[in-house]
Design a binder for these strands. Structure first.
Length: 430
RNA sequence: GGAGGGGUGGCCGAGUGGACGAAGGCGCCUGUCUUGAAAACAGGUGUGGGGCAACUCACCGUGGGUUCGAAUCCCACUCCCUCCGCCA
């Protein structure tokens, strides 16, 4: 959520920021509503003040009358007056409630403003390659795509995945399942032991309010699974429950930064991508992901974004997977993001750059939605913190990258060095 | 699923429908005293909205209702706890 004060004070700046994302938003109605609301609130509060006063006087007269010294006429007049005042208050209240509901509806669909350092552009073609690492491996044979490799090796079973659950579901078997487990273990260990994150195990279903807090609702419900009976939503990412964790709290001085890491299943309906990436396990309805998340002092968020990316990069480097880092342009960053870096790993089999991590700073956007505040120092006013999130890393895509990058001419796949202790063997063979 | 109990300020904990934003205690902050600290004593100590100063309004799990007036009464919901049943 953007700050209503900012919109009120500096509408041009907000409109310009939204325009960079390609959002044509008319703020005039919002600003008018906000102005009306404030007028009505003042009026209502004044009425309430006189109402309270009259009610107190009535109480005193009531007490006096019990002692036998009441002023019946005054009491009757007061009762009539307070009643009519109540009616006026109620009318104003209805106007205010309507206005506030409309304001909230509008505010909840406004995306975050891109930072100045975000590249200009409206779609992915304007993303900028910030840097890259490693050289794509050269092969003296034609590298296979993971859907062929996985099937030959018996580690990915697409057919049975769709048999039991439908399109875009898959089954990992034997070394495939072990590879996923090894990756999760290894990644969590690196993040908790070396990068300073605290490991969390989280619910995979959340309430609507939690989805609103992270920015996934009300706008992107189409991409989420929802259980109507219990009114719970399945996570598209651990970012959602991690954002909700400290909702409505005021963190004491000295508690920030907080760095969390969590492995959760992620569920996505992929409606918008219907028909795209239908082969293999690149785009599926359910996958596992290790997610890093930070709650920080606003002064530190820019630096924390860089270390967040570095923490994800570190994993790619240790896995020996060549990658590039994109700075997403204003039109391509996510709804809640103020700035995003994507890490893409080269996959020689399907011959494409695979997005294995997306690292964003949301500044105070999610903090406003979720009411995440901290006290800068003892006795100071609470203020909104900044939140950041980044994959570290997305599992199926890393599995794709490992299979395709580490394949050998005979169709076997070498296990990356860092995972060998976790797997217990060096090569995946049929 | 059944039965019962309960959600009050950072914490504990009072609160007969009328000056309760809320007693008391703890904690915390400031001051006095002290070489310093502790103790003692005095004062202060929630969040949000409007104005952005004085001030004012709201908030006692959430949402409705009754009333001139609700933390207090009524209804619904929600969360927590205890016991029984069921499942693991």
């Amino acid at each position: 959520m953007l700050s209503i004060e900012l919109i009120r004070r500096n509408p041009e700046l907000v409109a310009a920021g939204l325009a960079r994302r390609g959002e044509e938003t008319a703020l005039a109605e919002l600003i008018d509503l906000d102005a009306s609301r404030r007028v009505w609130v003042t009026e209502r509060d004044e009425l309430r003040a006189t109402h309270n006063e009259m009610s107190r006087e009535f109480g005193k007269l009531m007490a006096a009358s019990k002692q036998g010294g009441g002023d019946e006429e005054r009491m009757t007049a007061l009762r009539a007056e307070t009643q009519s005042t109540s009616e006026r208050i109620e009318a104003l209240e209805n106007q205010i409630n309507d206005a506030e509901a409309k304001i909230e509806t509008m505010m909840l669909v406004l995306p975050n403003l891109p930072l100045d350092s975000v590249p200009e552009g409206l779609d992915e073609t304007a993303n900028i390659i910030d840097r890259s690492w490693g050289d794509p491996r050269t092969f003296d044979f034609t590298p296979q795509a993971h859907w062929d490799l996985g099937e030959q090796l018996g580690v990915i079973d697409m057919e049975r995945g769709s048999k039991i659950s439908g399109a875009r579901f898959y089954v990992l078997k034997g070394a495939g399942a072990q590879l996923e487990r090894a990756l999760i273990n290894w990644m969590l260990n690196v993040h908790t032991r070396e990068h300073g994150y605290t490991e969390m195990a989280l619910p995979a279903m959340v309430r609507e309010q939690t989805m609103i807090g992270s920015g996934n609702l009300p706008k992107f419900g189409e991409n989420l699974y929802h259980d109507a009976e219990e009114d719970l939503w399945l996570l598209p990412t651990a970012e959602v429950p991690l954002t909700g964790l400290h909702r409505d709290e005021i963190l004491e001085p000295g508690t920030l930064p907080i760095r969390y890491v969590a492995q959760t299943p992620c569920f996505r309906r992929e409606k918008a991508a219907a028909g795209r990436d239908t082969r293999g396990i690149k785009r599926v309805h359910q996958f596992s992901k290790v997610e890093m998340y930070k709650l920080v002092d606003p002064a530190d968020s820019a630096a924390e974004l860089e270390t967040l990316v570095a923490d994800a990069e570190d994993l790619c480097q240790r896995l020996g997977l060549p990658y590039r880092i994109l700075s997403l342009c204003a039109g391509d960053i996510g709804f809640q993001s103020a700035k995003t870096y994507d890490i893409e790993v080269w996959s020689p089999g399907c011959e494409e750059w695979l997005e294995v991590s997306s690292c964003s700073t949301c500044e105070d956007f999610q903090a406003r939605r979720s009411n995440l505040r901290y006290r800068p120092e003892a006795g100071a006013r609470p203020q909104f913190m900044h939140t950041l999130n980044g994959s570290g890393l997305a599992l199926p895509r890393i599995i794709i990258a490992i299979l395709e990058n580490y394949q050998r001419a005979d169709g076997s796949v070498e296990v990356p060095d860092v995972l060998k202790p976790y797997m217990g063997y060096d090569v995946i063979t049929a």
